[in-house]
Nucleic acid binder design. Sequence first.
DNA 1: CGATCGTCCTGCATGC
DNA 2: TGCATGCAGGACGATC
Length: 299
Amino acid sequence: MPELPEVETVRRGLAPAMEGARFVAVEVRRPDLRRPFPDDFRGRLEGATVKALRRRAKYLLADLSTGDVLLMHLGMSGSFRVEVGPDAGRAGARLVPGAYYHARSETLAHDHVVFSMSSGARLVFNDPRRFGLMLLVPAAELAEHPLMREVGPEPLDPGFDAARLATALAGKAAPLKAALLDQTVVAGLGNIYVCEALHLAHLSPRRKAGTLVARGGVPTPRLVALVEAVKAVLAEAIEAGGSSLRDHRRTDGTLGLFQHRFRVYDREGEPCATQGCVGQIRRIVQSGRSTFFCPVCQK
DNA sequence: CGATCGTCCTGCATGC
DNA sequence: TGCATGCAGGACGATC
């Protein structure tokens, strides 16, 4: 699913429809996502105003006027679509000048949650595989919530740097691929962007994570390059509106574009894109998941 | 404690 | 065409 760039793209799409708007009606059509919905989910949301819509790791966080935070995760296949009513032109214009939004549609298969907002927008959460999640957490408890407590640094924040990553990776025997997928090491990376970042940094996904840290916990030049690669790949992907494979679309229905810029992901057998490299992209399986890399230039 | 593995669920592509 | 199999952007809980 949605990794950090896709979740951030969704956040940017939802924000104009949610921020400053009130939940007028909340419909839960299917209460059994990854976890059951909280008791009185509807009652706690209706009437509440969204103060801000934030993202942390792959979670969307809506700060509510009631003191609750609505925490949402898209799982593997979750998406939102923003619909505006018969007054589509007006409402759409009010949401984002020039942006296209869905006209109000019939309910589709796997539409599990519908938020009707005072902005005039209907926000429909669709999730075929039902790995998604919605919870309400009192704001004061958010930082210590089990889902948030262990989450690592935001990779695009200045606080995520080589020194910070060195601390997390020091002594780790796990392959770099697995270490970067670990949300406590760095937040928001998933299978695609780990593959892409490792290729950009010319690092093998099979290399032991601890080998990027020199004695005394000092980051090696390779680790510095990895941090730069992670930031660059994520920033470029957000700029492109994320990647659209099977499920992910932007909230206005348009496709993200970053999949056209994959250098390794799902490119098994293709020539390596690294300047001057004669390698061919290979697919291997690590901890049960596909890894794509170039065995020639990734060391 | 840390590191793997299986599992949740549905849809789609592939191959026989 | 029909069916079986495997695979998919995530992450938790069990297990070693």
